[in-house]
């Protein structure tokens, strides 16, 4: 009889189980709660654990910041472009590494890993002069390109694992049924890769959102992303306004997620459709 490798049995010791849950709540979730409270508080006296009064004041004053709407738009635009470039470069690269053996493969792998090792700050300093020469400094395109540097290694990694797990059997099956390369990509890989595309998009977007130094150096102050507005605010003393601003940073990935979700619901049939195979 074959005994499948099963999950190890649950041990008794509910205290430890609850301890883990409490740690998750306190360490990972509590800061978000305090942040939300702070953003709606009007004057929070130390050492009170809850704000005395709640108000929309901080949100209102942040909405009066004229750079806010343009910054959010440009940030979303850059994030979207960075994510798409990641898919375009990352999916083929991941497939090449997962399904083929070829001369120089380990060298290629090393080059794909390098951006995670070499400080991006160094890379950007190095290409600064080059970017000036080709006229990409102070432009949105220049910023998009440098944001691809810290994101693409992760994307390639995600797709490499995805293709390794899927294997090449699907493609071979489709090919024997007479599907062309393009049809195979559209009807086989795309639906099967949905979860990985999902993760790659989210990761690229969040990393792009988190760039300050790269944007500052290449954007030269002309490309004003949300991060560029945020940094000067950090030194300002109003905690509640900064809390609102921080909440927006948490909301952006969420809205990006929803946007992507509805987009591919429109264009591609979800993986549920293919679950039978």
């Amino acid at each position: 009889m074959f005994v499948s490798p099963a999950r190890p049995e649950q041990q008794e010791k509910p205290i430890l189980t609850n301890g883990i849950k409490i740690f998750v709540l306190l360490f990972f979730c509590l800061p978000f709660a305090i942040l939300l409270l702070q953003s709606f508080s009007a004057g929070w006296q130390w050492p009170r654990l809850l704000p005395g009064t709640f108000s929309w004041r901080a949100w209102q004053s942040l909405s009066r910041e004229p750079r806010m709407i343009p910054a959010i738009s440009i940030t979303l635009l850059i994030g979207l472009a960075v994510s798409l470039i990641n898919l375009i470069l990352g999916i083929p690269a991941g497939k090449g590494l997962a399904h083929y053996r070829f001369r120089g493969k380990s060298l290629v792998e090393a080059v794909f890993l390098l951006p995670l090792l070499i400080p991006t700050l160094a890379v950007v300093m190095g290409i600064h002069i080059f970017m000036i020469r080709v006229g990409l400094t102070n432009t949105v395109w220049g910023v998009i390109l440098v944001h691809v540097i810290p994101t693409l290694p992760y994307t390639i990694r995600i797709f490499r694992h995805a293709f390794e797990n899927l294997g090449s059997k699907w493609e071979e099956q489709a090919a024997t049924l007479g599907a062309s390369q393009l049809t195979i990509y559209r009807t086989v890989w795309l639906p099967l890769l949905i979860p990985s595309i999902h993760s790659a998009l989210m990761l690229s977007f969040v990393i792009s959102l988190s760039q300050y130094a790269l944007t500052a150096i290449i954007g030269g102050g002309n490309v004003v992303t949300l991060a560029m507005v945020y940094f000067p605010y950090f030194q300002s003393s109003n905690r509640s306004v900064l809390a609102c601003f921080t909440v927006i940073f948490a909301l952006l990935p969420l809205s990006f997620y929803l946007l992507m979700y509805s987009l591919y619901k429109l264009f591609i049939r979800g993986p549920g459709h293919y679950r039978g195979c």
Binding site: A122, L145, I156
Partner: peptide, 13 residues
């Protein structure tokens, strides 16, 4: 494509 991108930016940089 990815190799060219990384060579152009990261290695050159």
């Amino acid at each position: 494509p990815a190799l060219i991108f990384f060579s152009l930016f990261v290695l050159y940089g």
